[in-house]
């Protein structure tokens, strides 16, 4: 019974983080600022949801597969975030500046 309540809390918290991350990706002004919520959903959202699922599954192959997914996401989401940011910087995408900084650099 305790496991059900705990996994319920973890699942809903993970789902909340996923929605917050998606909403952050919609609201934030610039590509580089959107990297943060994208990473947020991958690490926190996925972590809590997979942990919630882990509690629901009996300790067998299912749990091992869940751990494989969690570990894999743990490694690849920072990698893709880093690679995307590097590619964007190499392509000359300049980070978004506050209004007064933009005036200094003479941008629009």
């Amino acid at each position: 019974m305790v496991l059900d309540v705990l996994s319920w809390v973890l699942l809903l918290a993970g789902a909340a983080f996923v929605v917050i991350g998606a909403f952050g990706m919609w609201r934030l002004p610039d590509f580089y600022t959107r990297l943060h919520p994208a990473g947020l959903t991958d690490t926190m959202g996925a972590g809590l949801i997979l942990l919630g699922l882990l509690l629901q599954s009996e300790a067998g192959l299912v749990a091992i597969k869940l751990l494989i997914i969690a570990v894999f996401l743990l490694f690849t989401s920072p990698t893709t975030g880093h690679a995307t940011a590097r590619a964007a910087l190499a392509a000359g995408l300049r980070p978004w500046q506050a209004k007064e900084n933009r005036k200094e650099q003479g941008e629009t």
Binding site: M25, F31, A38, A46, I49, T84, A91
Partner: peptide
């Protein structure tokens, strides 16, 4: 920019992984 799209598609991918698991 195209990088926003790559970021969004990557995010869609990981969310789909979670959706399939759930």
């Amino acid at each position: 920019t195209v990088f926003d799209r790559i970021l969004a598609v990557n995010s869609v991918g990981t969310k789909t992984v979670l959706l399939i698991a759930v």
